[in-house]
Amino acid sequence: MLFLKNAEIHTMVGETIENGQILIENGKIKAIGKEVKCPEGAEVIECEGGFVMPGLIDAHSHLGMWENAMGFEGSDGNEACDPVTPHLRAIDGMNPKDEFFREALEAGVTTVASGPGSANVIGGQYAIVKTHGDRIDDMIINESFAMKCAFGENPKRVYNAQKKSPSTRMATAAILRENLAKAKEYAAKKDRANGDLEKMPAFDMKMEALERVIRKEIPLKSHAHRSDDILTSLRIAKEFDVDITLDHCTEGHLIVDYLKEGYQKGIIVGPTMSSRSKIELKNLTFDTPGILSNAGIKIAIMTDHPVIPQEYLMVCVALAARAGMKEEDALKAVTINAAEIIGIGDRVGSLEEGKDGDIVVYTGHPFDLRSQVKNVIIDGKVVK
């Protein structure tokens, strides 16, 4: 058992608990409040003067896919020789021994959604993992929670260089449509077969993966920066009646009314603490999260690690708050909002009884750059 006492507890789902206590047992939060008693034999963490909140969650990262201080040998995020690779799984390319995992953990990041990059139109399956462990299999929350797809400059650039399609936005959209249509037909054939192996379609590993999107078991995870690319991704999702999350959404502040009207899933914004390295980032601004959040849209903030190192997730949040995002909404953007958008809000993202014991203790307010991460707890174990 683990007992945190004299804590200023920011639960992310209610009022701040002053001078509160948290009891963790068997990896889960057993009790939280002002009157919780410390059981005999429990390990005690003194939190007086600190700021206690849920472990941070990055809803869009590539942690473990591009390794620290390595070139090609540690680059496993893009299989950039085929624009359609839905059968690839992040967990098969993710190295938990990468130094970036330790740096993320020590910065209070306890959960990440990590997966393929944006070279391909359909890049493969994202996973959600904790940041502590020796074996990725022991760190998994969901090994395949979303299917990465990409719009805009990246697929164009990669395949134009190879003199292959897509080299236009039209082709990117057409390739995605073609494969969603094939997956829909594949799923229909399986349904008609009704378990009869003689009538089943020939096994297709790519279609097996995309079938889960068609059946709404997992969403598309859409890489889209420019406003027209964002709207194209929504158009295709509506056409095929599939779920989708909007990731990056750099020009989301330019189309707020359309997003409010036609999209209610939540938006994952970033990486904003970076240079305008390509044309589709010319309207990059830290105003975006606040404008969308203040309009009533659920927002998560991401690093897109290694674009922004994973350890600077909270710095991104502080800068969004400085640019006009309400403080509470900004903190929710890397806790409960991030958890709910990626479908794990029942386990993490807030400090409530029954949820995973993932907690970070700061020496002061996390927006103050002088504050340090004093303790990190994952699944009820003190890992820092």
Rank of each mutant, 00 (worst) to 15 (best):
K5A: 09
M12D: 07
I17W: 08
N26S: 13
N26P: 04
I29Y: 01
I29E: 01
G33A: 10
G50D: 01
F51S: 01
V52I: 07
A59E: 00
H60C: 03
H60E: 05
W66P: 01
W66V: 10
E67V: 00
E67N: 15
M70K: 11
G77D: 11
E79S: 00
P83F: 08
P86Q: 14
D98F: 07
E99V: 13
T111I: 12
S118D: 08
S118Y: 14
S118W: 11
A119P: 00
V121A: 08
A127H: 10
V129Y: 02
K148I: 14
G152V: 14
E153G: 05
P155D: 03
A174S: 11
R177Y: 02
K182N: 09
Y186K: 08
R192F: 12
L197G: 03
A202C: 14
M205G: 08
A209M: 00
R212W: 03
R212N: 11
I214Q: 00
R215I: 07
S222H: 02
A224Q: 02
H225E: 03
L231C: 06
S233T: 14
A237W: 02
K238A: 12
K238L: 09
V242L: 12
V242G: 06
G252L: 11
I255P: 13
I267T: 06
S277R: 11
I279W: 13
E280L: 04
I291C: 09
T303L: 06
D304E: 04
P306V: 06
P309M: 07
V315C: 06
V317N: 00
M325P: 01
D329P: 01
V334F: 03
N337R: 02
G343A: 08
L351P: 04
L351S: 01
G357Y: 02
G357N: 07
T363I: 08
G364T: 07
R370G: 05
